[in-house]
């Protein structure tokens, strides 16, 4: 009995400490979607049970190690008992109820985060090795950056052009794979303004690590402005802003959000594609043995029609649709950026 009392005290104190720790620490990144709130609530509940069970098992074990260790000159045997059916039943039933309860909570939260809001916006997400594009059917816009108004539910339609990718924004918590040949859906409601990243969470080949895209969650007004700009119909107060764009900085931003930098390094190291460092003005050898000097026209052609000339030692894997995704002006910025990398 003395042992039972000691062990209970140990467990109560231990789990109090650990539970406190678990609940004070921020285990996950900031919460930036309505769904994340629910996920975190459930995860927090899990962590509480985990902390308690962790202390329970380790507490009894460590207590046994100290209280029941063999003294140096003692060679008697331990207490002789084989089991206890009541205990066995108890520690079958209690965990059973606990896990069933958690599964039930899981199904409730799953239903809650899958509910369609009346005013949700459709966005089609397309993944390919190794970049993302986002299409807004409502507005007829295609973009390599995901811009969204805060507070409005988005119904993402997920598609893939080649292999499996996975659409994940850690701050939004939920993720879902893009499956070639099938449309998949996931609903998320951004609740925080700011800049985030889509991080491809399914192994998809060489540059999987770099398959990122930028997300800007903004106010409804800013979003509307962005849409109008994208459509070329913006006529707001600062209409003359266009001239102030820095082409190199803009080109960098576009190459990053467009996924170019997943395959092209800017520091000379070889990735899937040739490095951009020192590319402009260089003489390249093509697979047919001919050579070209890299100039603006060649760069433009390489981007909108990558198959036209393949560099020796590389495969024809560069996506073929950048000509549709980027406007000529944007391609011009990217070329300026490449030119700046000497």
């Amino acid at each position: 009995m003395k042992h039972a009392r000691n062990v209970i005290i140990l467990i109560v104190v231990g789990s109090a400490v650990l539970l406190f720790g678990v609940n004070v620490m921020d285990l996950a990144p900031i919460v930036a979607s309505a769904e994340a709130q629910q996920v975190d609530w459930l995860f927090g509940l899990h962590m509480n049970v985990i902390a308690f069970l962790y202390v329970l098992v380790n507490g009894i074990m460590l207590y046994s190690v100290f209280a029941f260790r063999r003294k140096p000159d003692d060679d008697s045997e331990g207490a002789y008992f084989h089991g206890n059916t009541k205990l066995e039943i108890a520690w079958t039933i209690i965990p059973l109820i606990t896990v069933l309860f958690f599964a039930f909570l899981g199904s409730v939260v799953l239903r809650n985060v899958s509910l369609a809001a009346p005013n949700s916006m459709d966005v089609t997400v397309t993944g390919r090795q190794w970049s993302w594009t986002f299409e807004y059917p409502e507005y007829g816009i295609v973009s390599t950056e995901l811009n969204l108004p805060v507070g409005r539910q988005v119904n993402f339609k997920l598609q893939s052009e080649d292999v499996i990718h996975s659409f994940w924004v850690p701050e939004w918590r939920l993720k879902h794979d893009t499956v070639p040949g099938q449309d998949k859906y996931i609903r998320l409601t951004p609740s925080e303004e700011g800049v985030f990243k889509v991080r491809c969470a399914e192994m998809c080949g060489t540059s999987h690590a770099y398959m990122l895209a930028t997300i800007n969650v903004m106010s409804q007004e800013d979003f509307d402005i962005w849409v109008q700009k994208k459509l070329g119909v913006y006529e707001g107060p600062e209409g003359g802003e266009e001239g102030e764009v820095d082409p190199v900085a803009e080109g960098f931003a576009l190459s990053q959000s467009g996924g170019c930098l997943a395959c092209h390094s800017v520091d000379g190291s070889p990735l899937v594609g040739p490095t951009w460092k020192g590319l402009y003005g260089k003489t390249e050898t093509l697979t047919d043995g001919s050579t070209v000097v890299v100039d603006e026209a060649y760069l433009y052609e390489s981007i909108v029609d990558p198959s036209a000339s393949i560099i020796q030692g590389y495969a024809d894997v560069m996506p073929k649709n950048f000509g549709d995704i980027f406007s000529d002006q944007e391609i011009g910025y990217i070329i300026e950026y490449i030119k700046s990398l000497q």
């Binding site: 996920v39 995860f43 899990h46 899981g106 799953l110 985060v113 939920l174 993720k175 879902h176 969470a201």
Partner: peptide
């Protein structure tokens, strides 16, 4: 094993 939390934790 809980679907909503796994959608967070999967492949991390």
């Amino acid at each position: 094993a809980t679907v909503p939390t796994d959608l967070f934790l999967h492949d991390s």
